[in-house]
Design a protein around this nucleic acid. Structure first.
Length: 255
DNA sequence: ATGCCTAGTGATACTAGA
């Protein structure tokens, strides 16, 4: 079973790229972030045509998350619990083939310091509290998406340039460590220790051509799920396609 | 240190991304 995560950076603007990748890669489940579209503008027909059921939590202009699945997903949550005043669409969760899958788009948090950075850390705390309710379940759980965190220096092409960026601030890395300490496995790092792996390259200065990237899209597996991990990787070539997102699809294979 | 690029909104240069 193959599960992918992909920050599409505008599901309508990138629809041809998304469909081409789905057609080529045929993941069983695809978690999408940054739809940048309200619910009524989700391209439901095209996704169905491609062979996928879908649930989505959209928002006008920004954010938005979705779970695509070849078998029908059973929605178990939308919106991150813990703050009724938070209206940003950054979390959706479903049970698919007995696996609980949380799809998240963690706030960027720039510029640092400021209210956006504060919001990022608060969102991280709420997410960590929710993750705590899932990690010890006896059913498999996956929390995947755009975490907007480079966990270590190995995950940044030039760490020294990023120390005051919200994606790499010590507070952010500390928050990620606290989350991991609950007992999650970082699937890509687990299978490829010490390897330089990126999932994002910005549009500036030919970052992709220079391989000036970041590893910010992650798969966190609870212990029950981690036992079934077979492979993990990044569909790097998709980033090189015309009109592609600045992220590349990232995936795992499970027993 | 800044802007480099791109999408969305809505019809203008903005915000936001990372």
């Amino acid at each position: 079973m193959k599960i992918a995560t992909y920050n599409v950076n505008g599901i309508n603007g990138r629809l041809p790229v998304l469909l081409r990748w789905l057609q080529e890669d045929q993941p069983d489940v695809a978690c999408l972030q940054e739809l940048k579209a309200p619910d009524e503008k989700f391209p439901e027909a095209a996704i169905k045509e491609a062979g996928y059921h879908a649930i989505w939590h959209g928002q006008k202009s920004w954010n938005g998350v979705a779970i695509l699945s070849k078998t029908e997903p059973e929605e178990t949550g939308r919106g991150l619990p813990g703050d009724p005043d938070d209206i940003q669409s950054r979390y959706i969760e479903a049970k698919v083939n007995g696996i609980i899958i949380g799809c998240l788009y963690l706030p960027n948090g720039n510029p640092y310091p400021g209210p956006k950075f504060d919001y990022k850390l608060k969102w991280f705390e709420r997410f960590t509290a929710h993750a705590q309710t899932l990690v010890d379940k006896d059913v498999p759980v996956i929390l995947t998406g755009d975490y907007n965190v480079m966990p270590t220096e190995l995950d940044v092409y030039k760490p020294e340039r990023w120390v005051n960026d919200a994606l790499f601030r010590v507070e952010t890395r500390e928050a990620f460590k606290n989350l991991m300490a609950q007992g999650w496995t970082d699937a890509l790092r687990e299978l490829h220790p010490g390897e330089v792996i990126y999932t994002f390259w910005d549009y500036f200065r030919d970052a992709f051509g220079r391989n000036a990237g970041l590893r910010i899209d992650h798969f966190l597996l609870n212990p029950v799920m981690a036992k079934r991990l077979l492979k993990a990787g990044v569909d790097r070539h998709v980033r090189g396609w015309e009109k592609s997102s600045d992220h590349a699809p990232t995936w795992i294979e499970l027993k």
